[in-house]
Each structure stands twice: as C-alpha cells, then as structure tokens.
Simulated assay, not measured.
Amino acid sequence: MLADRSGWMVGPAALVALLAALGAATGLSPIGWAVGLACGAVGAVVEGRALSRYAHKRGAADMVTLTRAVLACSVAALVAESFLRTPAVGALVTLTVPALALDAVDGQVARRTRTASPFGAWFDGEVDAFLILVLSVTVARSVGVWVLAMGGVRYAFGLAGRGLPWLRAPLPPRYWRKVVTATVGIALAAAAAGVGPVVVTDAALLVALALLAESFGRDVLWLWNRRTATRALVAPRPTAVAIGREGSGVDVVRTWGERRRLTRGGRFHGT
C-alpha cells in the first residue's frame, strides 16, 4: 500500500499480522479473515489509483493514516465475525479507540512536517468514512437500522455528485467537519462497547446524527448557492480537491486551471 518500492508491502503485512493476532486472541474465522483481507485489497487498489492521480510520494502523516486504515480493516473483520457468534467487544474497542485517536495525529504531523497534500486530505477522509460505516453496521444491530444513515451519508453524497456536477465543486476547509467526525466516531464506539445507560447511548447517537446532517447540509447548501458560478469550473468528470488535510488552514483550489496544475484527479469531502 506504499508508493515506494521499499515499503509498498508494509500495509498488507501489518494487516495480515493484526488479523493473525486477532485469530489467536478471538479465534477469527475464515469469514473474518476474508472480510478483513478483502477490505485491505480494495483499499489498496483505490489508494494506488489515488497515488497515481495525485503523483504523490508518501510522508510521515500518510503512514499514520495508513495505520488507521489497517485498524479499520481489522474492525471490519470483527464486525463480520459478530454475525456468526458473540461479538468480541473487547477486541473491537481495543482497535477502534486508537483508530479514532490517531485521526487527531495525522493532520498535526502533516502541518509540522509541511507535507499537507491533496492526497493526504483524501486519504484521511476516506478512512474516516470507512471506519464510521463499519461501526454503524455493528451498532445498527442493537440500536436500529437508522444508525446506518451515519455510515452511508458520505457515500450517498459521493454518488449524488455523479449525477449533480455542482456537488463535485471544491469545498472550503472547515474544522467543524473534523469535530463532527470525531463526535460520530466516539458515539458509535461507545454504543458498540455498550457503556452507559441505553437512554444515554441512544441520545448520544441521535445528537451525532443531527450534527452529521447539519455538517453535510451546510456544505450542500453552500454548493447549491454557488452552483452557477462553479458550473464552468466543473468538467464532465471534474477534479475537485481541498488542498491540505482538513483543519490545516490551507486554501481550497479555486480554478480549474489551478486544479490541473496541482493534481490530476480525486475529490475530498470530510464529514
């Protein structure tokens, strides 16, 4: 999963080692193995295409995000396993907590090393979205299917953008998206762990869903109000990229010409 030849196997090797450790600790079945490895394989292909489009060389911040991706794939394996037998809640929480905590690290590393990049913003956002999707699947089994809205909204936004070009226009950086993402992740992790009274857990999930709806709703409204101005900037298959990791304070690329000079594809929308 690394761009350079010397380290491209680090991600897959780490995933296999972590799944093996889970197998020894929880008795991970072939289904769990298959789901974990499939998530890693799909992620590697998607990431490889993004690396090619952005002409990006990995930095320290990307390695932090890669660690989060490996943890998220392992969480997916445990969630799949939970459909077959009693969920390994302890192992799931043990993997989820660092995956959420490291979300506050990769952006700081990128800023301090001055390696903030379009690829880093995209990678960070996709790992966030995938982890929330996986957690929403396991929580929905005990709370209700409405929780799946938390995991599906990011992908619904992306699919809508295929038919509505104005949704693919660049968005301004907004730190609030990171706050909402962290809130949703914490609420889902707490619900998966079963900590606290049911009423409190359900209330926290409802608040997280409301914040998520507000965040996406604000961005959709912002894009709608500027749909005429951005129509000329959005090609049939556009490149709309927020430059820098979310919260980095780096400006959004404003024009099609600038986007062409800085990247050859991709899009980022953090929750």
Rank of each mutant, 00 (worst) to 15 (best):
P165M: 06
G161E: 03
D103K: 08
R168W: 02
P87V: 10
L95M: 06
D103E: 15
L167V: 08
R141P: 00
L100M: 12
V127I: 12
S117L: 04
A104N: 10
A116W: 00
Y155K: 05
V127N: 04
A116E: 15
V145E: 09
T138Q: 14
A88T: 05
T113G: 00
R168L: 06
R168A: 10
G158T: 12
S142I: 00
Y155I: 08
R141Y: 01
G120D: 05
A129N: 11
G107Q: 04
W122K: 10
V153A: 13
Y155T: 05
T138C: 14
S82T: 11
A104M: 10
R112S: 12
G107S: 09
A156L: 15
V89Q: 03
L133K: 02
E126A: 03
A121I: 00
V145R: 07
V93C: 09
V89E: 05
L92T: 14
A101N: 05
A88R: 04
P165R: 13
R68F: 03
G151E: 08
A101E: 02
D128N: 10
F157E: 03
L100N: 10
L148G: 11
P165W: 03
T115Q: 12
A116S: 15
V89F: 03
A77R: 10
R111G: 11
T94Y: 10
I132K: 07
T113I: 00
I132V: 15
A91T: 08
L84T: 13
T67Y: 05
V137I: 15
F83P: 00
A77D: 09
T67Q: 04
L167A: 08
R85A: 15
L167N: 04
W166H: 07
L95F: 07
T138S: 13
G144C: 08
V89T: 15
M150C: 14
G151F: 12
A160Q: 01
G90C: 03
V97F: 06
T86W: 00
R114T: 05
T113P: 00
F130L: 15
A104D: 05
D128G: 04
R162M: 14
L100D: 09
G152R: 03
A72N: 04
A121Y: 00
V147M: 03
R168P: 02
R154Q: 12
I132T: 14
L135W: 12
W122Q: 11
L159Y: 09
T115C: 01
P165H: 09
T67W: 12
S142A: 14
F119E: 05
S142Y: 01
V147C: 03
L92D: 06
L71I: 07
V109F: 04
L164W: 11
G161H: 04
D103C: 08
L164S: 00
L135G: 08
W166V: 09
D103T: 09
R168E: 03
F157P: 01
R141E: 07
V109R: 07
A160R: 04
A69M: 14
A149H: 01
V109K: 09
A160S: 14
A76I: 07
E81P: 01
F119Q: 05
S117I: 03
F83S: 14
G125M: 01
L100P: 02
A69W: 08
S142F: 01
A121S: 14
D106K: 12
R114H: 14
P118T: 12
G125D: 13
A104W: 13
